[in-house]
Design a protein around this nucleic acid. Sequence first.
DNA 1: TAGTTTTGATAGATAAAATCGAACTATGAA
DNA 2: TTCATAGTTCGATTTTATCTATCAAAACTA
Lengths: 297, 297
Amino acid sequence: MNFRQLEYVIAVEEEGHFRKAAQRCCVSQATLSEMIRRLEDELDILIFDRSRNPVVPTYNGKQVISKSREIINRSKELIHLKSALEGRLSGVLRIGIIPTVAPLLLPKIIKPFKKKYPDIELKIKEATTDQLISDLESERIDAAILATNPSDKDFTEYPLYSEALKVYGIQDKHKKRITTKEIKKSTVWLLEDGHCFKDQVVSVCGLEDQSNQFDGLEMQCSSFATLVGLVDDFGGYTLLPELYVRIMSSKRQNKTRAFESPEPFRKIRMMVYRPFVKKAHVSALTALIRSSVKSNL
Amino acid sequence: MNFRQLEYVIAVEEEGHFRKAAQRCCVSQATLSEMIRRLEDELDILIFDRSRNPVVPTYNGKQVISKSREIINRSKELIHLKSALEGRLSGVLRIGIIPTVAPLLLPKIIKPFKKKYPDIELKIKEATTDQLISDLESERIDAAILATNPSDKDFTEYPLYSEALKVYGIQDKHKKRITTKEIKKSTVWLLEDGHCFKDQVVSVCGLEDQSNQFDGLEMQCSSFATLVGLVDDFGGYTLLPELYVRIMSSKRQNKTRAFESPEPFRKIRMMVYRPFVKKAHVSALTALIRSSVKSNL
DNA sequence: TAGTTTTGATAGATAAAATCGAACTATGAA
DNA sequence: TTCATAGTTCGATTTTATCTATCAAAACTA
């Protein structure tokens, strides 16, 4: 067993293809094939089902790949240890963000982060909470920015910020605050399934799990911009997180109101699986996000 | 960088000696020397200070060794993955136990464990709480059996059992229970510093941190057997955990009493640092200890 | 002090491995 | 069938790890 074999296995899993994987690893396909066969012999585990296209890992193979990732990730850390010890953070930081946070947060933080830590290569993945949790466990990402608290307590969390949920779609200029009862009388436009924000809205408003239906129109929304457009065109309400309200036009901000106290809010957290690896990287990013949001909320 | 280089580094750290390390790794000293030099070149970190005898790691070298252990431990897990997946637990399980628990617990569990899991090689280390916590962090051991709760919350704990603290040295056969006030009037013999049991006794009885002094005699005790002997010879009292009382002669058990309610007790826990590796091994041992103790307490 | 032992480093030879290009087999599409 | 694509196998080549033998420095020893 050697590091390269593990890297080959990871590459094949990600590419689903021996030739592409070989290309990525800068070796001939023959070498990669032979090395993977040798690893399979040594572990006495068939890692890939080659009869399928794309090549897929077997059940046992998935366990091998998972362990391989752990090992390769740590070996990368060892290679970057020197610069880490010197305080020059370097290497890769792989972050996952849910779609209802990404467009609000990323524009604020990417540039300052790259400026402050030029030697860190930032890899960002936008995906659903479930996907990101699975990525954390398999060490495909180092940290995830989520709005829900995974019931599973194998994760460590660092609170980032809380933001209130606001209501969009108010026409009455004199109205100050609004209750859930009032908006339930009308249509409440929701994001499509899979977004945790949708579940939060349903729970906050005590809605039946109504889908976006209006006069024969069914919409699968994946962004706040679309939701706001729907409200403008068809009436009704939608809920928006505070940070999104702040980047809307003032005309639209005028159609937004806070809930009656106590205001519902969502907590955004940095979640990590192995709190000690990339600790310096993650806390650098965490600190940056906190200070960035503090000046905006 | 390859696995063997990391193994060589770990061996040198543990042996403090290139030749001995080479012998342990079954290679020539020249090979080991060369490979370590190459790793140092690659990482651009001087790992060992060779001018000292025994050879000691540099500060940065210690970080390298720590990461190397993480990597090597995981590579071992990968090698044993097949049998782990088949339910036949195999490989090494390295356990640390504090000295005031080891002699009470080990005799009960080692044989049944070896019988039930013949493919697991059990390595047991007896050491103080502080030492074991450091061993857990550096992955020198997989789990530790402790009586104190490390304030640091980076550890996961699995409760094993609780045992009451009893008082030894009672002469009055008609006495049923005893209070801390009563025993404080006389000498209370203690274990030497470093044992957490001693600190627990001092705290339970509200003692000044008195040392074992009696008529010009100063004793550094490291076992309950010695403490009991001291009480027999010189009078006074000592505190014993319940499991120890059970293995004493009935003559001595007759000189033992429980405290007035609420009885003080100590909680014995299995502590792990990375709850997911060797999870099956650790829970196998945990289950065995619990059931073994249940029939004895 | 001079000789001896011990320690880790170095050099050249050798065995083991990883890698490559090319030929080979299997599968599915035109 | 014929072709294209996929992964495997084979022999040659390069790279790497390892060995033995030797060296230089430091630590003992007589």
